[in-house]
Design a protein around this nucleic acid. Structure first.
Lengths: 269, 269
DNA sequence: TTGCTCCTCACGTCACGTGAGGTGGC
DNA sequence: TTGCTCCTCACGTCACGTGAGGTGGC
């Protein structure tokens, strides 16, 4: 099951020795192997190779084209398989540790990210998954208004009755009833000076399987994945793509700041 | 007036010999020259060089980066200077011939482009400048509805009372009173299988200075310029960027088809 | 059995920045 | 006058595709 290297070459126009050279030099593509060592390519691998060919034709270097093909694009996201930001991020970045934490810790991390935004005076693009619309309304009237006003754009996912652009400019997106995203708590923040993502999936026991990161690449992936979900659920409101996060390289410092705030808040109870 | 090559090198991080090599090999940048031959660079040239540096950092080849920098981007458009699609296109593509034609010829060309869309069964992105809202309403109830229903997206510029997303999905953009665009008649059509632009500026005598093209590059430039104007006038409705026109290389055939239809229509009176 | 696959080593071309070397204008 | 500018020719490095050459599994 899977295409041979000759089949892939025929389908993509990339020669057999070139495919092998790419794999040796860049680790891409990475097909399955038969016990004998023969390569077998999956369909998504072929799609990514075609994406590389397209980017090369647009003057991209091979290295850059492969780097782009590795990360999700709106066309690549499958809303069935990647039905939540958490699931999609987990699949694409298996290296990220997943931790099981309580609601208090989720809230502490969310607030810590919000404080980081405020502290840096950034105007980020925000995507927030709130589970229930009621929770969003509470947060909005409470702490949230300040953050959203500062944001360049804001998308909120919850069990709204219907999707719409609210009067304050917030894109309110209705999660389809029964969708896995009903159980997701997530916050994606893409700014110039800051980047952070927190995504948690509520288990039956009320705790969350969660992952978080302040790395620009991962945050940006989360943003693409989230907007692809929005485009799937509310095609008429299709959000514009967000410019790549710029000038963010002090991930370690920001990461420690965010987790530090969260720890302080939790230890304060 | 203008920066010396050393000044540009300091501002962009591109070395002096490299700047000269780019100019020799690609004709970019193309600074003014003193009578002695010394180069003097303008501000927009510096901006374009910085755009090239950015694209190179994103893995683009020098040739591709320069090609991108040559064409307008939403950030590059100055809505004061490029206050109409006609003016902007004329400035960026001085090689395009400008012809003075009457209202009947404008209409014939517009209809010819619309027929070409219909004939190819394309689902294009449309931008149409109608001068007066009344004219749009007439056209809409007449021939226009079919075209707009087929379009992937439609933006209409006219002297509407205010900008809005109409119930049928058309983005109605109000031209500010007194703006030069009030006198523009334009049609930009970006599809997969077809591309065409017609832009005319009404003179005091009621005739139009007009230019048109079926080349994908020029059409795409016109689309970017038009959407930049829309984003300037109606920032809250900021239209999404349109994917590049794909697979359109039979410009000669389509060009002859369009002008042929127009000629036939005019000769039929 | 035939054609495909595996591997490594290495070459060839092209893109692109830079340096030399001598000159005249700010 | 000093430092900047002009020009051409050419080199050096790196990216990237491909070919050779010998082997074992579909």
């Amino acid at each position: 099951v899977g295409l041979t290297i000759t089949g892939v070459a025929a389908r993509t126009g990339v020669s057999v020795p070139t495919l092998r050279a790419w794999e040796q030099r860049f680790g891409f593509p990475r097909p399955d192997r038969l016990p004998s060592g023969h390569r077998r390519y999956g369909d998504d691998e072929v799609a990514r190779i075609q994406a590389v060919v397209r980017e090369r034709a647009a003057g991209r270097s091979l290295e850059a084209a492969i780097e782009l093909a590795r990360r999700p694009s709106p066309d690549t996201v499958d809303p069935e398989r990647d039905a939540t930001i958490f699931a999609a991020l987990r699949r694409r970045h298996p290296e990220l540790p997943v931790r099981v934490i309580g609601r208090a810790a989720m809230l502490a991390l969310s607030l810590a990210i919000e404080e980081e935004i405020a502290a840096l005076g950034d105007r980020p693009h925000l995507v927030v998954a709130f589970q229930r619309a009621e929770l969003y309304r509470q947060a909005r009237d409470d702490r949230w208004r300040g953050i959203a006003r500062r944001a360049e754009s804001t998308i909120v996912l919850a069990d709204f009755a219907r999707s719409r652009v609210a009067a304050d400019g917030v894109l309110e997106v209705a999660i389809p009833p029964g969708a896995p995203a009903e159980r997701e708590w997530a916050l994606v923040c893409e700014g110039r000076r800051s980047a952070a993502v927190l995504a948690g999936w509520e288990r039956a026991d009320g705790r969350f399987e969660a992952l978080w990161s302040v790395e620009p690449d991962i945050t940006s992936d989360a943003g693409v994945l989230a907007r692809a979900l929005v485009a799937h659920w509310a095609p008429k409101l299709a959000p514009s793509p967000v410019p790549p996060v710029a000038d963010v390289d002090d991930a370690l410092r920001r990461g420690m700041a965010v987790t530090g705030r969260a720890i302080a808040r939790l230890g304060d109870r």
